[in-house]
Design a protein around this nucleic acid. Structure first.
Lengths: 312, 312
DNA sequence: ATTCTTGTTTGTCTAGGACAAAGTGCTATA
DNA sequence: TATAGCACTTTGTCCTAGACAAACAAGAAT
């Protein structure tokens, strides 16, 4: 085993890889003394593999709620200890209820039995149907996967693999829904900066399982484009998905702008972790706290629709 | 029509929206005098709607090959003239061959007949089958959509809508492929920074239509993770997709690293616009120039596989 | 008609300073 | 015993202005 050729990554590559802004990388160096990249011929930072690895560990812990000041000075070993603590904490919780199946599926991926994993997924989908599959298999699976990754028990590529297979399964489910187009029309998307499309896809499916006609724009639609789409396509509702990464003030500002600029009868729905614990919610915005309340939301939409047509 | 409430976007929002780096926005201001945002209470840049609009036009033209020094000083009217010129240029080319159907589909979206558009898509898929649908409908449709967007003839949200429906159609196609798992195993992904997943999805489908067992990691897998995945999963080949946006030097460096670190018998495939006109290609990397040559690549993989098993 | 050379354009890097939003912890109130 | 208010600390992102390499353009020489 020769040592890898000590290739060093640029700040741009590191920023993308670890998921931390370039400014943050520089200010961490200034404040905490880590990372301390070597310099190229023109003074550019070049991060050695070893520091990159440590940065990845740190970033994982930051996602779990630790703060930079606490973890930045720690050695790789100490970081691993913290990860391990999180791992035991998570596994206690994992013993609950029926997620033995899910633990088994993750274990299959970890030991390289990918086809067995995807087989289990399809089997669950067959058995449970779209709605139950999403709520009781897909979501818990992704949550557990996230936890396992945060604890360093799962490689990034395994997380990618799991995500891809879940996505494929959801698409399979989408094709098996018989569209009886009798419901309201809902426009779906996320705001710029929100790149996670999985939640959106699940909402899309759940809505269609309820007989709703969905129109998805995919992720990251600029606000003015959302408004234009609402004007052109005249949906009954607009649904936005938020993951946990979002900045609160930006989210609220965006929701306020939508609430101001979108013509009145249209219902504005917002859901996802990034929005479920907001305080000051602009008027007209309806927060959907959980995926399993979507059927109630749809019922409410149907009622509104009937009222309007009764009046008109 | 009252004027919009003169809300102004921050540099971060503008950067994401227009797709231009923050540093570039600042240096454009310094060099060309545009944009010239107003300043907030602490000196932060706040870009008025009007400048944002102009930035979007400029960015479109930059994508088409114009250079900042030429277009930055131009007024909105002059920018529109350039866009119009591109539009006529494009339409001349569009008259060729059989893409009348495609023009019609785009026209349907423009006039709000979305269900008609998606109906046509499904119909084409039924008629053509996966392979032909991708090569003769999906790709030309996306290319034409890109051009129409570049000329300002298509809103961004319409492009999103088209992309989403094509994606859905491809997933439908994926489910209709009868997997006779007799072929080689291929690992699929893109490098960090490459966020376009459509090409990847199409390659995935084409490979599976040829009987290949594909394993997709989705987009943006870090290089060390790609290597780890290759070691763990032991595919016959690794396929990487590149769109046109990539930086050449970074692409070459990444390919070289993969070529160095990935164990020998594995075949390295690279495809997409971002890679088709590269000069200095690292050894072992095989460039796939076009989607319709994938069947030949598969044939070659099959041959290699047979040779190895004959020897072993 | 191609390759080489020179000059110009353009994106991204650097440094250190600044400030608001988010988090932490203490105190006073129902 | 909780909850709300208030100061204090931490942390991410923005600012300015300078520098340089990669990408491009255009002319020269094969």
């Amino acid at each position: 085993m020769e040592k890898p050729a000590a290739v060093a990554a640029t700040i741009d590559e590191v920023s993308r890889d670890v998921g931390v802004g370039k400014d943050s990388l520089r200010v961490w160096e200034r404040r905490y003394g880590f990372p301390q990249p070597i310099r190229g011929s023109n003074g550019e930072r070049l991060y050695p593999d070893e520091q990159l690895e440590r940065l990845r560990s740190i970033s994982r812990l930051l996602d779990q709620g630790y703060r930079p000041g606490k973890v930045m000075a720690l050695s790789v070993e100490q970081l691993d200890v913290l990860s391990a603590q999180l791992a035991t904490g998570a596994s206690v919780e994992a013993e609950s209820s029926d997620n033995a199946v899910i633990a088994q599926m993750i274990a299959a991926v970890r030991s390289g039995r990918v086809d067995q994993f995807s087989g289990s997924l399809e089997q669950m989908l067959d058995r449970q149907g779209a709605r139950q599959f999403i709520l009781e298999t897909a979501v818990p699976l992704l949550v557990q996967t996230g936890k396992a990754w945060a604890c360093g028990q799962l490689s990034i590529y395994m997380e990618h693999l799991i995500t891809q297979h879940v996505r494929a399964a959801l698409n399979t489910a989408a094709n098996s829904i018989d569209q009886s187009v009798t419901g309201p029309k809902v426009l779906l998307t996320t705001l710029p900066g929100e790149r996670h499309g999985m939640g959106l896809l699940m909402v899309d499916l759940l809505l269609r399982a309820e007989g709703v006609e969905t129109l998805s724009l995919g992720v990251e639609t600029p606000i003015d484009q959302i408004i234009e789409a609402c004007t052109d396509l005249q949906p009954q509702a607009l649904a936005l998905a938020f993951s946990a990464v979002q900045k609160r003030t930006a989210v609220i500002a965006a929701l306020k702008e939508l609430s101001d600029k979108i013509p009145e009868p249209l219902v504005l729905l917002a859901g996802g972790e990034g929005v479920s614990k907001l305080r000051a919610i602009p008027p007209r915005i309806r927060i959907v706290k959980s995926l399993d309340t979507i059927n109630k939301v749809v019922a409410s939409l149907r009622r509104d629709l009937k009222d309007v047509s009764a009046v008109g």
